[in-house]
């Protein structure tokens, strides 16, 4: 079943004279894990915000085309209604604190209070996400007194706790240590396996290649392609679009080794290892 349908989506920010999103069309199935890649200013964040209705409801601006979430058109809904279904983690972790709560624990509760989660469940969910994002040790700290990475973890925890059907994440691990980043991707993957649809904008291509089912490549607001990581990262024109393939792909391209029986290059560590194993190095 299609969870998200985007048809000819066009969008221009107010006071801007270029299209930030230019005629995008694609569909996403329930439980799919989609990566959005593209150079800076390609439109990744704008697309993310179009899926939660901040574009156009919050920013206004010129909007064309249609976005459907579960068959309901975003343009005709309020952000409040959409927020019950679609959760979003923003790019900048420092600006996602509500400013009305004194502790990390209460900060995570904020969203749950608003969507009417009963207390016992609320507490269970908070404890779960504190553990998932490894921030129990700072739960009583003021949200503003966290390290950058801890703040980003709190932002992710706050949204995951709300258990949205669709999770939109805009570079959610930019400040995380490598282990934390890996844990977050695994957590997101397991959510996707439970049927939650994931949309993730990301510059960490190795992670996109490893975890995403499909990858949407944006350039200048236009969709260049949406396909499997193998297909996308094997494209010859990636660099023209300002994207560098995962390091594993780059090595294999350089060495001219493809995955057995395909025209694709390896995109993950395991794939690269299997094609390079046995070669004399």
């Amino acid at each position: 079943m299609n969870k998200i349908v985007v048809e000819g989506l066009k969008y221009k920010y107010p006071l801007s004279d270029t299209l930030a999103l230019d005629d995008l069309s694609f569909q996403v199935k329930e439980g799919e894990f989609i990566g959005i890649i593209g150079k800076n200013s390609a439109g990744k964040s704008t697309l993310c915000q179009a899926l939660v209705g901040l574009v156009p409801h919050f920013y206004k601006g010129a909007y064309g085309g249609k976005v459907f979430i579960d068959g309901l058109e975003v343009k005709n809904q309020t952000i409040a209604d959409i927020s019950l279904k679609v959760g979003m983690v923003f790019q900048n972790p420092f600006t996602q604190v509500t400013g009305s709560k004194m502790t990390v624990y209460e900060e995570i509760a904020f969203g749950l209070e608003n969507i009417g989660i009963p207390r016992s469940e609320m507490i269970a969910r908070i404890d779960y996400v504190l553990d998932l994002l490894k921030i129990e040790q700072v739960k009583d700290q003021n949200p503003f007194d966290l390290s950058g990475g801890q703040m980003q973890r709190m932002a992710i925890a706050s949204i995951i706790a709300m258990k949205p059907d669709i999770l939109v994440l805009d570079e959610p691990t930019s400040q995380l240590d490598p282990a934390g980043s890996e844990e977050v991707f695994q957590a997101i993957q397991s959510l996707s396996k439970q049927g939650i649809t994931i949309i993730l904008a990301e510059h960490k291509m190795e992670k996109v290649a490893l975890y995403c089912h499909r990858v949407l490549l944006l350039d200048d607001g236009k969709m260049v392609d949406i396909n499997t990581p193998g297909k996308i990262f094997s494209r010859g024109d990636l660099e023209q679009h300002g994207v560098a393939a995962p390091v594993y792909t780059r090595v294999c391209k350089e060495l001219g080794v493809r995955k057995a029986g395909t025209s694709e290059f390896p995109v993950t560590l395991a794939e690269a290892e299997s094609v390079l194993r046995g070669r004399k190095i």
Partner: peptide, 11 residues
């Protein structure tokens, strides 16, 4: 305001 919106503040 953006942060509040996505946390269901106006729900």
């Amino acid at each position: 305001a953006l942060a509040l919106e996505v946390r269901g503040f106006n729900s």
